[in-house]
Every structure is written in C-alpha cells, then in structure tokens.
Computed example of a mutant assay.
Amino acid sequence: MARILITNDDGFQAPGIRALAPVIAELGHDVVVVAPLDDQSGVGSARAGVVNRPIRTVVEEQDGVSYRGVAGTPALAVTLATVGAFGPAPDLVLSGINRGHNIGVPIFHSGTVAAALTAAGQGISAVAVSIEGAAPAHWATAATMAGEALAWIATEPVGAVLSLNVPDLPLDRLAGVRHATLTPITRERLIATTAPTGEPMITTRPADPNPPAGTDEALLHAGYVTVTPLTGIRALPDQDAAYALAKRLSAYR
C-alpha cells in the first residue's frame, strides 16, 4: 500500500479530515495527516513568508491516527510533507474533505484544490475532494468516494490531479459518477456594492438555476459525484507565438 498525505483548508480539527483519515487508514495505507491549524479557506496556493523561520505545529491523536496542525496554509502543509519534514515523502495526496463544494472556474482560489495542485507541481498525484452543503451530514459518502478516486489516480502518470465533488447524500442515493467540466463564471455574477462603512464590497447574484449541461454545477445538483481532471501551471503549446513574443521583448534589453 501507499503512503498517503491527507490535508485540507478547513483546519486539522475539521470534521471532514477527521472523517477521511480513518477510512484511508482502514484501506491499509500509511496515512500522514498535515493540515493548517485553523481555517484557511480561499487562500489558494499561498505560502509566503515561511522560509528560514520555525513553523509552529500541534499534534492530536484520534482513533489511532495522528493529526498534525501547522501554522500556515494548505500549500505549506503539502510542501513540508513532500520535502520530508514529517518522515518519508508521500506517494499520493488527498486534500479534503472540504465543507462545501468546489465547482466552477473560481476553484483556483480554493485552498483545498491548491493543495492538490501544489502536490502535482512536485510530481505527486493528488485528489481534492469536497462535499456539497454548508453543514453536511454524509461525510462517510465522500470518504468512500475519495478512497475510490485514490485507487484510480494511483495508476495514472505522476502529477495527475482530480477535483471530486460529492453530493451530501447516503451512498445508495447517489445518481452515479460523471466526468464534469468547470462551470464558467461571468462578471455578471459578481456585483460591486458599498458596505455601510462606505468601503467597497463584492457580492454575488443567485446561481443560475439552469447551469450548462455537463458542468460540475449541473451534475452535482442532479445528485452525481463529479470528477474533473485538472492541470497546474504549464507552458503554452503554441511555440511560434512564444518565439515571436520573446523576439519582440528582446528589444528591451
């Protein structure tokens, strides 16, 4: 079996990570849990200001699993684990279970997804798993699906990443599992308003009741587990355009 790093962006005491780790350990994997000390939702891949300084850590034991909290972001937790701060580097990374879905183009803001992409950037395949709803009841469903996704991604080329969104339903009530595209977002869904203090504020319009077919938003609301393969930072394939731009910029030397 593999050595699995489990992390999240909700904090090392969050119910999602506490539901996920025992399930993966019961599958026979060597589980190491490293996650933020507190809620780091929406921080993306931030990890600035951590070089050459000690990083506070706290360890708690529960049901035979050690949960390590670090004073920092999910991306930092992954980086620490993959460079050997807590023993051998992991073979694979699981990020979650995030409370609330991670759907659509804005997932690049998600600390849960960013943790998976950080692993991929270091040549380790990863799954980011999220469950629908602000107060989910069926963590076990998402944990089971995460275990299935982990088995699949272990057979893929290194650096593969999946974003998995799971309805908050009992396992036997899921509609199925479907590949999903990311729901597009337009500026019309974001509104600039003014707070009572006079400061600018952003709010959102209600979600589209009929999102595009085949997107993660549409399929998740229909009761499907959505699976979206992701890629991190990569070079553009159009070499001719890149060479032309490089030649143009060379005039500024």
Rank of each mutant, 00 (worst) to 15 (best):
P74A: 11
M1S: 13
G84I: 04
V105E: 14
R173E: 12
A246S: 14
I17F: 02
Q122I: 06
G100L: 04
P15F: 14
I6H: 07
A114I: 08
G232P: 11
P229Q: 00
P54V: 01
H138E: 05
G159T: 02
M1K: 06
V70G: 07
R173T: 06
N52H: 10
P88K: 02
A35K: 03
P184W: 03
T112G: 07
W139T: 06
P237Q: 15
S130A: 09
M1P: 08
V43I: 13
L94Q: 01
T226P: 00
L182F: 10
E26N: 09
A242P: 08
P237E: 10
Y243C: 11
D91L: 05
L219V: 03
G123I: 04
A151Q: 10
L171R: 08
L37K: 06
R187A: 15
S130K: 00
I103Q: 05
V93L: 11
E132A: 14
N98Y: 06
T197N: 14
Q239W: 11
N165S: 06
M145E: 10
A246K: 12
V59K: 09
D208N: 02
I107F: 05
A143I: 01
T7Y: 03
R18D: 15
R234N: 04
R173Q: 10
T231Q: 10
W139P: 05
G147P: 05
G147Y: 00
G133T: 02
T141R: 03
T79M: 13
E156W: 09
V93I: 05
S125E: 07
R47Q: 14
L94C: 07
T144Q: 15
P136V: 02
G123Q: 03
T197F: 13
A218F: 00
S66C: 09
L37A: 10
A89T: 14
P237W: 15
A2D: 08
P209Y: 00
R234P: 07
V158C: 10
M201Q: 12
L220H: 03
L182S: 04
L76M: 07
D216H: 01
V127R: 01
Q122S: 07
P200T: 09
T186H: 15
L94H: 01
G42D: 09
S110Y: 02
G44N: 13
L92Y: 04
S130D: 01
V65W: 10
E188Y: 09
